[in-house]
Design a protein around this nucleic acid. Structure first.
Lengths: 342, 342
DNA sequence: GAGGGAAAGGCGAACGCTCGCCTAGGAAGC
DNA sequence: GCTTCCTAGGCGAGCGTTCGCCTTTCCCTC
């Protein structure tokens, strides 16, 4: 079905190994005439190299694997876009797998199984749902060069990303500066580290301002979705009408929060401010435009690949790899936040 | 680095071919004792099959390739999710590439190049940006079993998806039924087929109702983004204040449209109705909740894989493959549409 | 005219696997 | 006791590459 080096060789009247030399640019040893004959033959026949065979002998596929949870997630898909960009720059390609847990695991496929079978040269763990998974951690640690965007039990895997606690802190400080004292939180799933870290940063800022935060009373948990955000907000509002501001852990949930606030007849920002994080492409087009903390998703993907590739190509006596790379987050002040009504 | 069949064989005291038999479940010919010894050895050593080698000899990788434009796009990423699901069901995996044009093409990589190199068993073309690309069409037609989600020049490739003209028609009919007569359009890029088809369906519904549609006056083009939608809407509003409804070609652009309407001081739906298409996860949480035509993105991915796999496994004298599969779209009426103010 | 060297290209081996056929040995049948 | 059949497992070949080394040819040089 496909033409092979041998087919090209036959047509050009040389040995297939010579064709290999030419097509891989190891020029020194072939005459110009032959080279051209070979190139022509390859083009006419429509030769497409076989990455399987090449990978087999080179013991490297120039490919890096990403274990992600799902493309549903904005952060993850942006992360992959960034990763792909950087990989392309450095002559590698990206393989994405969703075998972190859930459906795949039920079918008996291990963490990143298909990636390992395909012999990727390195692994990027981008599946927070597996952040507590011991087995996954073992794979990451022992098999291959790897980096992660989240905590890996037992460590030993460099982490790339932005500081979640800083994200929470920045949000809190912005609200504090405007004069808010009674701030509620719509969080992601509480078992996730990111949720805990954001709350830590958030709380620390409040404490620094000498404000107590009644955890259970002013917090509602959701699942990152707009729908979840709507429900959690509606509940929280009913429970704690005294709040003058909401710190929402994602723009998507904030979209729901804005709707819930509107439906409750509370004006944003005059009755209640809202600050979120992510900075989705449409966040500035919600009404009111959403104030948020921008998370550099794409950039994280780029940096993860950079780091991983450095790790893979590490010189024998290279410098020890960094074990944490933090990318800065940034406050994007729009109009969903304002001083509380006095 | 990796353990191979030979390593497992040595530990179990058999030939490596026997290990292969056992691990692939061709049981008949091996005693229970031996089988267990082999399984144990494989587990202890952490054997991971090498898909490269296997693909090489089997001349099949059990993998299907998707050429997509970008993960930025909601439709495309949902499509991939669906495709992955269905592929997993049928023991295949998915490889996604963004080599349709743009950055990749500039680096001299052909359409789907890396997918072909990896010897995928079939191709799904999901890159509208290449819908007019002759070379891409040739690859799709000649190389491999393929299906597409968009028109392919010259045909010969089955198309899976929903009817764009029906989408436009449904939107128009909904607005017509409410009593609108002066309806504007915020479209995607006009060089895309999808844009043209939607407008065709839209216009045909208007004509059926005996309404003339002044194309250039009531249409504004954007780029699918919220920002583009905002700008196009703002312009159109200024140009054609008589409009009582807007037909927007994507929910993302409609998000911008809603913002533009709000900023122009026009209430939705009482001053101007808005209907869009896609049904994004947050569309029901915009305020007002967006009326839209739901496009079955995930389902399209599933069907595309189904169809492709059938094509690949086609029995010698199988039925001729369908060349079009249409998935129904569905009106989701929410609150951004209402009768025009009389 | 012998020796040396560079240029051009051939060749064998190996990567890790699957597949089909082959063989050794024991049990069964007459 | 000899043939026949199974059963359990071995073995060779080949998939399409890359890599290092080897061979041939030809041109110089002394």
């Amino acid at each position: 079905m496909y033409v092979s080096l041998k087919d090209v060789a036959e047509r050009a009247g040389v040995s297939f190994q010579t064709v290999s030399k030419v097509l891989n640019g190891r020029k020194a040893t072939v005459s110009d005439a032959t080279r051209e004959r070979i190139m022509a033959a390859a083009a006419e026949l429509g030769y497409v190299p076989n990455a399987l065979a090449r990978g087999l002998v080179k013991q490297s596929t120039y490919t890096i694997g990403i274990v992600a949870d799902s493309f549903d997630d904005w952060f993850l898909s942006q992360f992959v876009v960034g990763a792909e960009l950087e990989a392309r720059n450095r002559d590698h390609s990206i393989l994405v797998s969703t075998e972190a847990g859930g459906a795949a695991a039920e079918q008996g496929q291990g963490y990143a199984q298909s990636l390992l079978e395909r012999r990727v040269d390195g692994l990027i763990a981008a599946a927070p749902s597996a952040e507590e998974d011991e087995k996954a951690a073992q794979v990451l640690r022992s098999r291959l060069p790897a980096v992660a965007i989240h905590h890996v039990p037992g460590g030993g895997v460099p982490v790339v990303g932005s500081s979640h606690s800083a994200t929470g802190r920045i949000a809190a400080e912005h609200l504090l500066l405007l004069g808010h004292r009674r701030i509620g939180s719509i969080t992601g799933p509480s078992r996730r580290r990111v949720t805990e870290s954001r709350m830590r940063g958030f709380r620390s800022a409040l404490e620094a301002a000498g404000i107590a935060y009644p955890d259970s009373a002013w917090t509602a948990e959701a699942d990152w979705s707009a729908e979840g955000g709507y429900r959690a907000t509606a509940q929280l509002l009913a429970r704690a009408p005294e709040l003058t501001a909401l710190h929402v852990h994602s723009d998507m949930m904030a979209t729901g929060a804005l709707a819930a606030l509107a439906d409750a007849g509370r004006d944003v920002p005059s009755d209640c401010s809202v600050i979120a994080c992510d900075d989705l492409p449409f966040s500035g087009y919600l009404r009111p435009p959403l104030t948020t903390v921008r998370i550099p998703a794409r950039r994280s993907g780029e940096r993860a690949v950079e780091l991983l590739l450095d790790l893979i190509e590490r010189k024998p006596v290279g410098d020890p790899p960094k074990d944490k790379v933090f990318l800065p987050v940034e406050l994007v002040a729009r109009h969903s936040t304002a001083p509380p009504r006095s």
